[in-house]
Structure formats: structure tokens, C-alpha cells
Design a protein around this nucleic acid. Sequence first.
DNA 1: TTGACTCGTAAGTAAGCACTCACTTACACT
DNA 2: AGTGTAAGTGAGTGCTTACTTACGAGTCAA
Lengths: 215, 215
Amino acid sequence: MHQQQAHRLPAEDRRRQLLDTALNLFSHKGFEGTTTKEIAAAAGVTEALIFRHFPSKQALYTAVLDCEHESGEHETVFARWKSLMDSNDDIGLFRALLEKVIASYRNDSRIHRILFFAALEGHQAGLELHRERSLPIFELLCQYVARRQKEGAIRAGIPPQAIVGALAGTAAHFGMMTQFFGFPHDSPDAGVVDAFLDIFLRGVLPSPSLEKATV
Amino acid sequence: MHQQQAHRLPAEDRRRQLLDTALNLFSHKGFEGTTTKEIAAAAGVTEALIFRHFPSKQALYTAVLDCEHESGEHETVFARWKSLMDSNDDIGLFRALLEKVIASYRNDSRIHRILFFAALEGHQAGLELHRERSLPIFELLCQYVARRQKEGAIRAGIPPQAIVGALAGTAAHFGMMTQFFGFPHDSPDAGVVDAFLDIFLRGVLPSPSLEKATV
DNA sequence: TTGACTCGTAAGTAAGCACTCACTTACACT
DNA sequence: AGTGTAAGTGAGTGCTTACTTACGAGTCAA
């Protein structure tokens, strides 16, 4: 947690270190709950150095949000999903979406936390960023679902937004409850994904035709 | 927002007013982001009065959380659900659950906000309270689903926790995204509930391809 | 060696924080 | 009318906050 005697780093390195340290603290205690003194101590420098690299605490906060946006990880996941769409692999796509959402809560929970703080504290820049990032993906998925509905591969009559929203929401809520709210969960994530996918694809009502097929 | 000249209330009334005012502010700005001065100003009294009714800011905060617990509204909803369970009205129960969750985000969003803040800021008492309140309902629903699975009214082979979690999660996530994150939504809540229920009950795959899906 | 440039700090500042205390005021009950 | 008491306040307390300023120290080219 604490780095000491990290003297005389090049400006760019120090900047990144401060951003990372700030992300750690902001994501666990919010903007108001985190002090610049704390951030400095956690980075092993004096408070004054923070204000050499960032004009204000607020600027540091928005820089933390912007910084996360730049990480290219989203693009690779995005690309994989597109290839699943191109091959009309509905089930593969839905499973990948469920897995990715839950995994992101397990691995990058700092980012989810800080976005939640932004939403609750009314930090407009953070909210706007979240929407800018999420909406295109959401809409792309909706377009895919709409196309597959036309092709008869997905049941028509359900709004695509509801389908994508239900899928993402199920996974996101599960991630939140277990990761942030400390709700107990016994089964491993993979089993949960299977169960959600099963419900989502075939519903919860029993189907006579299904029983015939499996017997 | 501001009450003025509300002088000389009986202690119990003033206490309740302060709790309500504090809930307003805490739910929008968090514990750290709200000052006792603000709460006092919004209630139209001096800061000192707050500390006559509550020993500390922290005590006021936990009192706000406890206070919400006491409102008997949960019991009536709870009772209605139980009667739906007694009459084995699966669809009615699931619809009521979806409606209640979404409506609670629309109407009592202050409580959801403050619980989220508690989760993020690590306020253990708030988290514990949330779990104590939610888990029994969750488990009761799980027991119901398990029974209906035995009776053949709900597909077996899916963990009841996944079924209840998926249903609640879908609704909760929708409520959160539209209410807290400012995501746009065109259709009315009733239509969304119908769509979610449709997906949940019968899945997204069309009937003919059900056999394929099992392979 | 010099000097210029950058990285970093010690020691501030004014404002804001939760919280206190000595005190007044309004009202119920004689 | 007088008095005991609960309700409410103005003016502070010491401490922390974000942010500043004046200065030192390492590095490297000339």
C-alpha cells in the first residue's frame, strides 16, 4: 500500500502512480471521503506534490475517470463479441456477456465502485463517461438482437432493449450483491452463469416439447 | 426544502423532522459529503440543536437507517406476496415482485441511495441491516420456487437462488440504471415489466429451436 | 564548475469541519 | 403573575481540509 523513498521519478511515471493510488482510495471511500493527504501518504510523497501534477483534487478525480477510459481492454472484448455476432452464435454471445459482466465485478471492482460513487454523488462527468461507454455497446447488442428476431432465431415481440437489459442486469446485479453488499453465494460463478443462461434462453416454465426432446 | 420559524416543536416531532431532513441529504450526498450545518439549515434550525437530539453525526446517520427499518410498509407487501404463494399464483407473484422492485426505485429512491452509499463507504451497520431485511424475503421466495419445482409447475434443474436472483436483479438493475445513472428509457414501466416477465417465463428462444438449444 | 531545469518538500494559509457551552426564550402548570 | 423546565441559540473550540509559497536537491549539457 505504502511506497517510500520513491524519489525523483520522471513526471509521467509519478503522474500514473498518483492516478493509480487515487483510484484505489476514491473507489473505496468516494470523493468526499478521501483526503489529498491520504493519497499522498499512500503514494509515499508529500501532499504538495499532488498539486504539482494536478491543479486540484477535483481535477485529479476526473483524471482518474478519464484514465480508465483509455485502457484498451474494452476494445478486445468488443472485438470478440463482434466476431460472435458475425457467426450468429447467440448462445455464445449471451454467455460471453454474462461472463464478462460478472468477471468485471470480480476483477475491476474499483472501476465499478468509482462509477457508483459518481452516480450517487452526482458527479456529472463520471456519469456522462459511463453512459458514453456503455450505450454504444448496449445499442449494438440491441441491433444484433433485432436482426436475429427478424431472422427467427430469437422470439419476436419482445423489445430488444428488454432482452439485452435483462441479460446484463441479471449479471450486474449478481456481481454487485456478492461483491459490494457482501451477500453470501455458495456456487462458483461458472455455475451461476449456466443457470442464468438457462433461464434466459428457455424461461422458467416447463415445456412439453422440451421434455420430449430430452427423453 | 427549507423550513423556517418552525420553532418549539415537541422533541419527538423535531427528532423525526431532523431524521427526514438528514435522509434527504445523506441519500444524495453520502455521509462524508453531508455536513451537519447543511442538515440544520435545511431543517430551519441551528446546528447545535442536532447535537441536542443526537450525540454525534454518526449516531444521526445510523438512526436514519434504523428509522427506515421501522416503517411497516414492508409487512403489507410481504403479506400480499404470501397470499399469492398460498394460491400458487406463480405469474402473479413474479409480476408483483418485478413491479414492487421497480416501483421502489421510483418512489423510495432515497432509501436505495443511502443503502448504496452504505455499501460503498463501507458502513457496516447499514450493510448488515440491508442483508437482514433482504435475505429472509429472498429465502422465502427460494423456498416457494423449490416447492413449485417439485410440483412440476416450474422447470426443475435450475437452482432456485438463480431464479429469484435473476428476477430481482433484472428489475433492480433497470431501476438503478434509469433512476441513478440517468440512462434514457422510452417505454413505461408497465411495458418493461411485461417484457421482463415474458422473457423470464418463456425465455428468448422460439419454441421450434428449443430442441436444438438442448444439444 | 557552472547554471538551468525539473522533482520534491517543509511550513505555511484561510476556510470549513464536528462538536460544545453558556445562555435565552417559550410554554405548562400552578 | 410567577416559576420550573424543555426547546433552541450565538459564539465559540480545536482540529482538519484543500491548496500555496519559498526553498532545496538531483541531473545533465556546456
